[in-house]
């Protein structure tokens, strides 16, 4: 009986810890943030809760809205009640540094949406890079292997757009940049 009771207690504590972890994920997601495994462990330790061995398997299995992403050297969690997968992946890219963030965003837009994106997009929320950081990242890309496809198109209003040559041909990207920046404003 004693053994069963201890087991029940342990199970109860593990369940509570798992629920607390899921609540933390939802809370952070509603604030637009991912949560790492280490952050979850720290929180549980702060609250003197034991982190169950199976916690990180249980979280997505037992909570329909909780999802795991891997990258930036860790695993991260988000709740789809408050955040789409695409937004969560963007936050993960932010953690992987500006080069990945810029390049993958540009590639996704060129491939899935067939459009270049304005450079200033990356100075706005949720990217929040400075213009200089974006320019420095582009300069670094031009010197480093693996980013050769990232290219620049300028409009007649001197606005710089970025696109991936792997998905958009140069003339096409230039035409689209002019249309998006100048054409649409003059064609309201």
């Amino acid at each position: 009986m004693k053994g069963r009771s201890e087991k029940n207690d342990r199970t109860g504590r593990e369940d509570a810890a798992a629920e607390r972890a899921a609540a933390l994920i939802r809370e952070k997601s509603s604030a637009g943030r991912l949560v790492s495994e280490s952050e979850i462990i720290s929180l549980l330790e702060e609250e003197r809760r034991k982190c169950p061995d199976s916690l990180f398997t249980r979280l997505p299995d037992e909570n329909e809205d909780v999802h795991r992403l891997s990258g930036a050297g860790s695993h991260f969690y988000y709740s789809s009640r408050h955040m789409t997968e695409i937004y969560a992946r963007l936050l993960l890219l932010k953690l992987e540094g500006p080069l990945r963030l810029i390049a993958e965003t540009v590639r996704r837009n060129s491939c899935a949406c067939r459009r270049p994106v304005p450079l200033d997009l990356f100075t706005q929320p949720p990217f929040n890079l400075t213009r200089q950081e974006v320019l420095d990242s582009l300069a670094e890309m031009s010197r480093t292997e693996g980013w050769e496809d990232i290219a620049v198109a300028s409009t007649s209003a001197s606005v710089v757009f970025l696109y991936s040559r792997a998905h958009l041909e140069t003339g096409h990207a230039e035409m689209l940049a002019e249309w998006l920046d100048v054409g649409q404003v003059q064609n309201p």
Binding site: M83, Y87, P125
Partner: peptide, 8 residues
Amino acid sequence: SPQPWAEF
């Protein structure tokens, strides 16, 4: 611009 609720 990307928003937490938006797929696109």
